[in-house]
Amino acid sequence: MIPYLFATAMLLIGLYAIVARRNLIKIVIGVAITEYAVNLFLILLGYRAGGIPPILSKGMDLNKFAANSVDPLPQALTVTSIVIGLGVIALLVALVLRLYEKYGTLDESEIKRLKG
């Protein structure tokens, strides 16, 4: 239950930043916070108290390893979503730079050339 509440709360903080902030950079930070909320949630899903890392090393007993290691699948998912997040944030920052070049401001309320 705790991972769910924790991740939802962090997601809401990120959404608040996206909705309420005017500064484009802060909006991008909000997007990053929502992404990390979900990444953290995925990692917490695989957590097991007293678990060992899911990496098999030489001379380890297979059954014991399977019984003690944490779930590796959410970690694989998280790595993938971190990579995607990197691409998204890089593109967002590039867009913000270009927007600043065109409008001369980072204030969202002044970037309103489209009719809405």
Binding site: G14, I18, V31, T34, E35, A37, L92, L95, L99, L114
Partner: peptide, 21 residues
């Protein structure tokens, strides 16, 4: 990469990122 296109893309991207999340 005109001003309007960048603005539209930024708006689209923020919404799209929230959706993907």
């Amino acid at each position: 990469t005109e001003a309007e296109e960048l603005e539209a893309s930024f708006k689209y991207m923020i919404m799209g990122c929230v959706a993907s999340t």
